[in-house]
Design a protein around this nucleic acid. Sequence first.
RNA 1: GCGCCUGUAGCUCAGUCGGAUAGAGCGAAUGCCUUCUAAGCAUUAGGUCGCAGGUUCGAUUCCUGCCAGGCGCGCCA
Length: 551
Amino acid sequence: MLKVAVRESSLKIPAKLKIDFQRTKNREHGDFATNIALALAKENERAPKEIADLLIKLLNSAKFTENLNEIGIKKIEVAGPGFINLFLEQQSRGQVINLILSNLENFGHSNLLKGQRINLEFVSANPTGPLHLGHTRWAAVGDGMARVLRAAGATVSTEFYINDRGNQMNLFAQSIINVAQNKPVPADGYNGEYIKELANQILTENPDFKKLTGEAAITKYREAGYKLQLSEQQQVLKDFRTHFDTWFSEESLYQDDFVNKVIEKYRAKGKVFTEEGAIWLRTTEFGDDKDRVLVKSDGAFAYFASDIAYYTSKRDRGFDLCIYLLGADHHGYIARLKAAAGCAGDDPEKNIKVLIGQMVKIIEAGAELKLSKRAGTIITLAELVEKVGVDAARYTLMRYPTDTPMVLDVDLLKKHTNDNPVYYVQYAHARICAMLRNAKDLSVTVLKHPIANQYLSLLGHEREIDLLSALSKFPEVVASSAQLLQPHRICRYLEDLAGIYHRFYNDCRVLPVGEEKVSELHQMRVTLSLATAQVIKNGLTLIGVEAPERM
RNA sequence: GCGCCUGUAGCUCAGUCGGAUAGAGCGAAUGCCUUCUAAGCAUUAGGUCGCAGGUUCGAUUCCUGCCAGGCGCGCCA
């Protein structure tokens, strides 16, 4: 409609025109706003305000009145330097309630990414120790991201890559053996209480291992330690409500000569060459700063050979997009992983995305806990959860964009107060549930949808308008959260929504007081509250946090 | 030396595509429970958006340089 108006306005339209048409941040600016007049100002050499006035005059002319009424526009204003603000009719704002009540747990879901098959790999720890803080961040964010992507219609498969190949597994085995025999662990070996526990457990289950020596001992201990450690990781992640569809073993890439076949495939594309006795992949062709070794001069596979094989496996299994969530210490991998996609003939911009998560620092009792594997002072996922609980841990780790380093204050998280935003959001939900229970006792019934305009237009209080506006933003938030791969947006939205509800609750009495008769406004507000609870619950579900009915 | 990330209130941090008075929580001060959960609400205080240039009608946002912090730069895995 605006477009038509502009065309009829005889204004000059610049070749490159970028127009915003978005929801406003401030209620005083109406429900929607556009900067179109500002954008047209230069080309027409007229003040933006003048242009805005002209457009509004056109829109208000008889020609458009019918259209305006149809979409529920109440008035149009010019404001500030030339923004055009649109105000909606009361009942149009209220329609979101009908939308929520008819979609329930699916409100916010969309078909935005329908048809996309996404492989989402995260955590991917070595099975040589417990999951630590860095893994924890990704466990929360990755799981949230998967849920958000699914809500946007994508088909998502979550995957954990088990680094079960190479020297470190033998070092792991040797460390257990040494500890079992009260000898110091080898240089660069694994330390910590858990190695002792593993040794004890292995010997208890397999007393005959004591007699083993040399290669046989390494193999047996390695297998037993691997099995125990992996299942420990799996249990911890399960308790953290982080689900993996696939546990993919690096070692399995070497079955049936798969890695060699992949190298030959890359060779056929002309990206593989031999130099100084080693076999290389020409990753520099796709922006890497040096080429990478696939097979070392001693004939052993380099780690990168697994990487390209793994990527190939993902593509072979039908995924359009492979997302990797890596720690900050792996940012050097972005270029080579993208190059691996490029060398395979894929589009590095489309088929692969590598996200880097910055470090997590942890503070307890006012001091930073220095993390050191060698000293055995690692904070594990299990310990963090034990200290603060799954909901608080997940929520806090998911609350920030992953490219910001974050500081976790354990003492703060332990407090069940507003210091911890997860309780603020959960409290809003519990509060509504309590009120709905009371409503039932007072026989204030929830209105059946679709709710007629006459009821919807009862919601004219500014707190009610704020709340309706916040509720109608939810689908957009989910969509942008999925598109940008930023689940933290859900958290921020929920905090915003919870705050708006709390303010509504404070200013707008929902239930009748004393002998007061039940009115349509009471019913309408109860219904509005029910819709709000639904949205909070949907949001919390997306980040894997519980929506308690009582607190 | 090169590369990636970060620098916004006392603290922890939001702020997709450049837009209206830069936001939230905590911390500080003061109010609000004989009516729906006070894990709440309201008011106040607190900012040269690291610094300097540039592009633009308009820059916290984009570009360049510099400063500070974190993390990387193996034929390790």
